[in-house]
Design a protein around this nucleic acid. Structure first.
Lengths: 241, 241
DNA sequence: CGCGGCATTGAAATTACTCAAGGGGAGTGG
DNA sequence: CCACTCCCCTTGAGTAATTTCAATGCCGCG
């Protein structure tokens, strides 16, 4: 396996082994184009989608608001993830996106993608795969919110996050930095932040997981996986042909 | 606007006005290829996705199961909807699909789509748009389950369903056939069927909506819309260039 | 007529939310 | 270096929403 320093290259490499030339094509996609300060709304719901981006560094949150201010976070974007692909064909974006931390983005234009299909079809396929995987994450998130209770749901969330972060080289499954505040977590998990706080305490008291100083430590990953009925099938997709 | 009898042609026509030649291309996609009896599982979670389909007639449910039998329905497929597109690039399907009623499907192969891109690019674009819209429906569903209470959630669900069915000529927004049993509804809305039953009663007693003999009647669509904070923006996407 | 699948209802238990009041820590300005 | 603030986190007590368990009703169909 060739050098896979960047999150995106790591992630695509998980799908198929890319050769040096192909990795160079990916690297070309990672020209930084835009910096977004923490807290800034990249685009709002109903805005015309400005462009697609790849996250080079930082975390984003995709969300929708109800009229009375309730917020549901659809998914978080971490390095290596794409933003705005779902909205590409829509006239207006169906969701808003905000920078959770400072973001470094690279613009991923339509043309750039078409060139990629021509010059490196295997790379293009890997990218389409990773976008499909991001959709599968949203689907599992819906299952999580609809059918797991607060404890299971929170456990599942962090197990997924750990796997995703590990896959892009930003930590280990059992220990990783997490810049999200409890309100972000609550809005993602469909809970109030007060209740989320109590759930975190319970996870800690059971010796399963600790969130402290913006860092997650999973003490007993097997027990946590059992509790959450976590199966990483939707995250593990390898090209094995 | 040319004749738009079939659900799919109606729906695509909502995105852009297709000419006679283009409509013929769509019609060619609608060659019935497969019938699936009610209750049959088309493909399970983890199965290799067999193919993509368009629903010509009948209703489908896409769902995921937890190990202990809990089920979350991701979305329902109605005539004009596509099945299995999300799974196309994945090695294994991330969800299962079952026929709620008898289904008539048309297979929508990769090759068929590529031919379409060549022969009728506007039709292909319209199809890609409608697939994006189906994703936007899943996203709104997540918001619904995560941030609306049982009453609002149920109201929202039926308002969306009415709009979707009307768009494909299968009823009116305020009155349409709905073959789903209460357990299906509950599994979609993240509720128990017992509680869903009570919610339906409350909607009925408030004079908002009645479900009887597999038919939905909305008595006060404005009040229901207010209750649910329903905004159809994510369903109304027109090409106006 | 009886069976099976679905719908309905009651009562009790549990889960999650609301409201309200501190507590801690990191930065800022005196 | 010490207040002071602003966020964010934590906890308690009471309330509301939802689930669970259990029983019964309804209706179409063989």
């Amino acid at each position: 396996m060739a050098s896979l320093r960047s999150p995106l290259r790591r992630k695509l490499g998980q799908f198929s082994d890319l050769d040096t030339g192909e990795l160079a094509l990916v690297e070309a996609l990672e020209t930084p184009a835009r910096r977004v300060p923490a807290g800034q709304v990249l685009f709002g719901e109903g805005d015309p989608p400005p462009a697609c981006y790849v996250i080079l560094a930082g975390w984003a949150a995709m969300y929708k608001l109800l009229g009375d201010g309730r917020r549901q976070i659809i998914t978080f974007g971490i390095p290596g993830d794409f933003l705005g692909v779902r909205s590409l064909l829509l006239r207006v974006s169906d969701h808003a996106t905000v920078a959770v931390t400072e973001l470094t983005l690279s613009e991923f234009s339509n043309k750039r993608f078409m060139d990629l299909v021509r010059d490196g079809p295997r790379v293009a396929a890997a990218i389409m795969w990773t976008v499909s995987r991001e959709e599968a994450i949203v689907v599992e998130h819906l299952v999580n919110v609809g059918r797991r209770n607060a404890l299971e749901r929170t456990a599942h969330f962090f197990l997924e996050l750990g796997k995703r972060l590990e896959a892009v080289g930003l930590g280990e499954r059992e220990r990783f930095a997490c810049p999200l505040i409890q309100e972000d977590l609550a809005d993602a998990l469909g809970l109030t932040s007060v209740h989320l706080n109590r759930v975190l305490r319970q996870l800690r008291e059971r010796g399963l997981l600790t969130l402290a100083r913006r860092e997650i430590t999973i003490h007993d990953i097997d027990a946590l996986g059992d509790l959450a009925q976590f199966s990483s099938a939707y995250l593990d997709q390898h090209e094995d042909d």
